[in-house]
Simulated assay, not measured.
Amino acid sequence: MSSDVISNAKAVISNQTGPHQQLPQLVARHLASPFRKPYPAFSVQAFEEANNWQQRFKRPIIFDSYCGVGESTVALAKLHPEASVIGLDKSLHRLNKHDEHYRASGVDNYYLLRADIDDFWRLAVAAQWQLSHHYLLYPNPWPKSAHIKRRCHGSPLFRSLLALGGRIELRSNWPIYVEEFALALSLAGHPAQAQAFNPEPVMTPFERKYLAAQQTLYRCVYSLNL
Rank of each mutant, 00 (worst) to 15 (best):
V5M: 14
I6N: 03
I6C: 07
S7P: 02
T17Y: 07
P19T: 14
A28K: 13
F35C: 11
K37Q: 13
P38G: 06
P38F: 04
A50E: 04
N52H: 15
N52R: 15
W53I: 06
I61F: 09
F63L: 15
F63C: 12
T73Q: 02
A75P: 04
L76R: 09
H80W: 12
H80Q: 12
E82T: 06
S84N: 15
S84G: 08
G87K: 00
D89T: 00
K90E: 11
L95G: 02
E100D: 11
H101F: 02
N109P: 08
D116L: 10
D116E: 13
D119W: 07
H134L: 14
P143G: 09
K149Q: 14
H153Q: 14
S155E: 02
L157M: 12
F158I: 01
L161F: 09
L164A: 03
E169C: 13
L170T: 06
R171Y: 04
I176D: 02
Y177A: 12
Y177K: 06
E180A: 11
L185Y: 01
L185C: 01
S186E: 04
P191Q: 11
P191Y: 08
P191N: 07
A192E: 10
A192S: 09
N198L: 12
P199M: 06
P199N: 01
V202F: 05
V202E: 05
R208S: 15
L211Q: 14
Q215K: 10
Q215H: 15
Q215E: 14
T216R: 11
S223R: 04
